[in-house]
Design a protein around this nucleic acid. Structure first.
Lengths: 332, 332
DNA sequence: ATATTATATGTAATGGATTACATTTCACCA
DNA sequence: TGGTGAAATGTAATCCATTACATATAATAT
């Protein structure tokens, strides 16, 4: 392996000078600089960053914890993070946590052992107390999911407001019997349910608790939810699903029961998952500003790493209602 | 920050002994070991792996290049990789390359700069010559996509055989006018087309070149492909799409033209993407043994890192035809 | 021409952990 | 009890690059 010493010897200078060339230190004469650069090229020298990182006690790497990379929701978020990171000389790495605390612990060692400079959580499994402790000692940023009491910077949307907007859309279409399929286990789900309740209450629709199917998630959850709802005497005419995957499961099950969407039942999803537009019918949904969420999260992270962030702000970015076929108004 | 020296001083031993305790070296007396462990705990000492890695000149990290994390196809593959990696004391990190050579170059520095021990490519943008050069100097494994001439270990499936099986399934259902939507820009696509040709030729169906829509990909490609096919005088009765996303785009466009799947046109996809089962109709497709592909790739990687792999094997694992609604035989 | 300052480069310490080698300790045996 | 070998521990070099500080050289001012 070629080291900085080899380059120095070959170029007839000291390692310090080579280092200065590598780091674009201005106090190297043009002649020397060119000479060193040539040797670097000739020897195909690649600096060993383990040495640099040890010396500087930083790695310029940020690790992103993902529940699972298969969740396409996060791809745009990560892109946003990468944009800001690269602009600041940082790199972004990702890992799967599978929402398991044990897996999180494994990868948490990356920051404890100085292998990365910071960690961004997208859907933490560990609880807010542990997270807050962690955030005291290390640069931590939460992206999307968080618990109210967590002492760490957060970037997210106003989920209650978004849930409100979704349900309001259904109300404006004339629906009165509106069901919800979701989970209040994560805060985002809980807040979306709050928005659902707020919207109904506001127009004087009494909340029918049997219309609220909780603690089911993802595609299968949508199927289960619809089965439960169709077993009711008074069936809903509209469905607010707190994720697009739930919505897709729900629609599939509705179709199985020969119910048409949106003619018989309108369905609205959440996230504007890539599949939302591809599905048949295409899904009305709430889009999150994913790219900007990622950018903002990385901005906070880099500030935090550099010690320029002392408070723990909770930043909420603007969501958007996207109307597609699954809630089209029906010609009577 | 607490260092190994601090622990040593506090425990009244040398740093070497602390290091031995950390690494479970047997030549430490039980008494000393317990004493050191207690101090480690009391001081909440976290070893700085930058030091260890520099000394050992290894990081026990493997980086996986993903075209984009939003491609759900790779999640199971990564899971397989993680299983084997963790079993061997390695960790898996991922990054987005967006199939851009420039981005690949950025992350390639990770291995050149000794920040990771190996890189697994899932869909390399760089060409086989550069890859082969790289593989000479560094542990590189290719997973799924590869070019014939690449001098590096490869784990994949027999794409020609899989394409053959897919088309054969359509033939057995009685179809004669079978179209293909795909891309021969990646080798897997090219090979699947070979399988398509082989299957048709075998039963004496002449190949209609206008039934082959090339160089379109993903969801939009499916839409474009169907538009082209429906413009033909003699429309096909079956469609082999070389990915599930293409198939979904195709079906969406077919429906738009009031064509029913599978009644009017049968459609088969490829990959057994998660959405394949969720879509309406659910997709007949070719499933790749993704978990096993990931496991195998990581096995090769670790062998290669340890210097126990000198050849460049091309390992092909077994695929499987999964029959669902999109090709159900039609009752006449 | 000398003093002063700026520029360029080198020397050596540093970061934290590991490990080859050296030394000490201790148990056991003759 | 002295000798032997094994076990336990310590010393110091090492991994590679960076950087504070020292020194040498060149440029400028007086």
């Amino acid at each position: 392996m070629v080291t900085i010493q080899d380059v120095a010897k070959e170029a007839g200078v000291s390692a310090a000078t080579v280092s200065r060339v590598l780091n674009n230190n201005h106090s190297v004469s043009i002649k020397t600089r060119e000479k060193v650069k040539k040797v670097i090229k000739d020897l195909n020298y690649q600096p060993n960053l383990l040495g640099r990182n040890l010396r500087r006690m930083e790695t310029r790497m940020v690790l992103v914890f993902l529940y699972n990379i298969s969740n396409p929701f996060y791809s745009k978020i990560v892109e946003g993070m990468e944009t800001i990171a690269h602009k600041n000389g940082y790199n972004v790495l990702m890992c799967n946590t599978n929402a398991k605390i044990e897996t999180e612990q494994i990868y948490l060692n990356f920051i404890k052992n100085k292998l990365v400079d910071g960690i961004i959580f997208t859907s933490p499994a560990m609880r807010h107390k542990a997270l807050s402790e962690l955030a005291k000692d290390y640069p931590i940023v939460l992206c999307n999911e968080y618990e109210r009491n967590t002492q760490a910077p957060v970037v997210t949307i106003d989920n209650e407001e978004a849930g409100y907007d979704a349900v309001n859309h259904l109300i404006r279409l004339g629906h009165k019997k509106i069901a919800l399929i979701g989970s209040c286990q994560v805060r985002s789900g809980y807040e979306r349910e709050l928005g659902y309740r707020k919207a109904l209450k506001e127009v004087g629709i009494e909340i029918n608790e049997s219309y609220i199917i909780r603690d089911v998630g993802s595609y299968k959850g949508g199927i289960i939810g619809v089965k439960k709802l169709l077993a009711l005497k008074e069936k809903p005419t509209a469905l607010f699903c707190i994720s697009d995957l739930i919505a897709i499961g729900a629609i599939k099950q509705l179709k199985k029961n020969k119910l048409r969407v949106p003619e018989d039942i309108a369905v609205i999803g959440f996230d504007n998952n890539r599949i939302a537009n591809m599905y048949d019918p295409s899904l009305t949904t709430i889009a999150q500003p994913r790219y900007d969420i990622g950018k903002k999260a990385m901005e906070l992270m880099i500030k935090r790493i550099k010690g320029n962030l002392t408070s723990n702000p909770i930043i909420k970015l603007q969501h958007e209602l996207i109307i597609r076929d699954s809630t089209l108004p029906i010609m009577q």
